[in-house]
Design a protein around this nucleic acid. Structure first.
Lengths: 210, 210
DNA sequence: AAAAGAATCCTACTACGGTAGGGTATATTG
DNA sequence: CAATATACCCTACCGTAGTAGGATTCTTTT
């Protein structure tokens, strides 16, 4: 028994939460929208008010807690619609959300009108899982060469670049000429939109390949 | 000649930008707040409207573009107040912002009332730089230039190397000749026992410099 | 069968990174 | 005072990285 036109936004960035809440009220015809920074606040809100129609859940990866929370919400508030918002636009994340029982998934990079569309779809009890319509700049900890639009060979070379190996050693390891490596690298650079291997390394800092 | 009560929010997440904008209007007494996803949109806005009273700038690190943009804004719109918002709670970032001429710095994790305080301080032409009141986990993943046996200047250069900047830009940023940078780098390399900057970057992978 | 893509090779060229070997100025320290 | 360290400047040199414009083979797609 959820109350129409009530929503809760949960995000560990209070400012963002408040912002999204304001947006929901002004553009998506929600009467009352509450915000929560963490799980405790969420359950508190649910206790004192009634179960909301919609929960907008920020998928924050660092603790990996989001999927657990999602399951808990599914169990405690079976009639509440759950929209997951993520800064990561990895398809894998979206898939996990879908498996865990989320009703919709949207990127933070998405346009506001996409957001409005998603919410209105959800309100009609439809789901919202789009195949990553936005510029594909995956930010998860692991990344595959294919996701970057690279060939298999380029992927191998990229791995060695990220290990800091110079062309000569890469060529040696793959038993081809140094020039061939250079050409693979040229392909990688133009595909990734950078100028040199150093930009590749810094761009992929903190990520692991394949 | 900035117009009172006008602000621009620039953030590469449109939803967040709109959210913050809505928040500024409802809680900080701004009449009109515009949003921009990128630099081009910002300059476009500035062209067709008048210079804003306040710019809220998201500090997105990946391209290291923010500090450049900050400088450009300082130059083009000297009377506009600049508040930088960052997801990183690194003191070094805050310091850089201060050096680059920002008027205030605040974490995305900060509470909304802190945000309101910051904005109202800035509107009174005071600055807002707090010593990271938030959970400051001093990781062992951070490393200082002194620990590496480097001089202060070498430390600065190392920081820029780790950001992936080429010598020319480092020289420009520090206002010295490119050759001087090369010599600092030679010092860094021999001290760290590596052959080139790429080995430096991969050797310090996962660590952060202070 | 023809076209397209991927991997391999080549030469030649440019630009950047780094070393070597000079020099000057300043501040700190023995 | 002399010595040391740091930061800054210069020219010259060399090696690596990356681009450009060729070419060959093989596989996959049309």
């Amino acid at each position: 028994m959820s109350i129409q036109n009530t929503a809760i936004v949960i995000d560990d960035h209070p400012l963002v939460a408040r912002g999204v809440a304001a947006f929901l009220q002004s553009h998506c015809a929600f009467n009352s929208v509450f915000t929560a920074d963490n799980q405790a606040q969420l359950w508190q809100l649910v206790d004192i008010n009634h179960p909301p129609m919609l929960i907008v859940l920020d998928f924050w990866l660092q603790s990996g807690v989001s999927l657990d929370l999602l399951s808990q919400i599914k169990q405690s508030l079976p009639s509440t619609i759950i929209l997951v918002v993520s800064a990561d636009d990895d398809i894998a994340v979206q898939h996990k959300v879908q498996l865990a029982g989320g009703h919709g998934f949207i990127h933070k990079q998405a346009n506001t009108d996409v957001f409005i569309q998603a919410v209105s779809s959800l309100m009609r009890h439809q789901t919202w899982f789009k195949p990553s319509s936005y510029h594909h700049q995956p930010k998860e900890l692991t990344i595959t060469a294919i996701e970057l639009g690279l060939t298999v060979r380029q992927g191998e070379v990229l791995g060695m670049i990220m290990q800091g190996l110079p062309n000569k050693r890469i060529a040696n390891a793959l038993a081809v000429s140094e020039q061939t490596i250079k050409e693979h690298i040229s392909g990688i650079l133009s595909r990734m939109g950078v100028k040199n291997r150093i930009e590749v390394i810094t761009k992929l800092r903190g990520k692991r390949l394949e």
